[in-house]
């Protein structure tokens, strides 16, 4: 099967909440993403925010660093790869991402991985040579 050549985007983002917020706004303005539907745009911005914020809060909880974001656009989906040099995921595995229980005391967190798992396909994580590699696809 012939492969469709995609269009790639590459960002290097300091692992700080302000920098992530600004970078996301820049990503969403990229010419290559103008073809996304309104729904595709909101899903993309939300998932990337959750993933990048997780890296800031957890992987780089103890030391500063940078996050690499690679996006490849093809007609069917947006392929995303996020690479960081922070701490590994617990047990080097993706969190289960069960939906938080809304009964009783309302949760103020724990929504991130559930959103990521709900909205992405082909979610994969591995740890290699001191770096975290996360990849997934999003509908366009």
């Amino acid at each position: 099967m012939a492969s469709t050549e995609g269009t790639s985007l590459h960002f290097l983002i300091p692992a700080q909440p302000d920098a992530v917020s600004l970078a996301l706004q820049r990503v969403m303005r990229a010419r290559q993403l103008t073809m996304l539907t309104a729904d595709g745009r909101s899903t993309t911005e939300l998932v990337l925010a959750e993933v990048l914020n997780n890296v800031v809060e957890h992987a780089y909880a103890r030391y500063p660093g940078e996050i690499e974001l690679r996006l490849t656009v093809d007609p069917a989906c947006l392929h995303c790869q996020i690479i960081d040099s922070g701490l590994p995921m617990p047990e080097e595995r993706l969190p289960a991402g069960d939906p938080p229980n809304l009964g009783g005391d309302l949760p103020e967190g724990g929504f991130g991985w559930n959103l990521i798992r709900t909205l992405t396909t082909g979610l994969e994580y591995h740890r290699l040579a001191g770096r975290n590699y996360l990849q997934f696809s999003l509908p366009v």
Binding site: L46, A49, E50, N53, D105, L106, P107, E108, G109, F111
Partner: peptide, 16 residues
Amino acid sequence: TFIDSSGLGAVVAVRK
């Protein structure tokens, strides 16, 4: 026009 789960958590915290 945009809220993430941290923003949502903040709205929940205000409610509580």
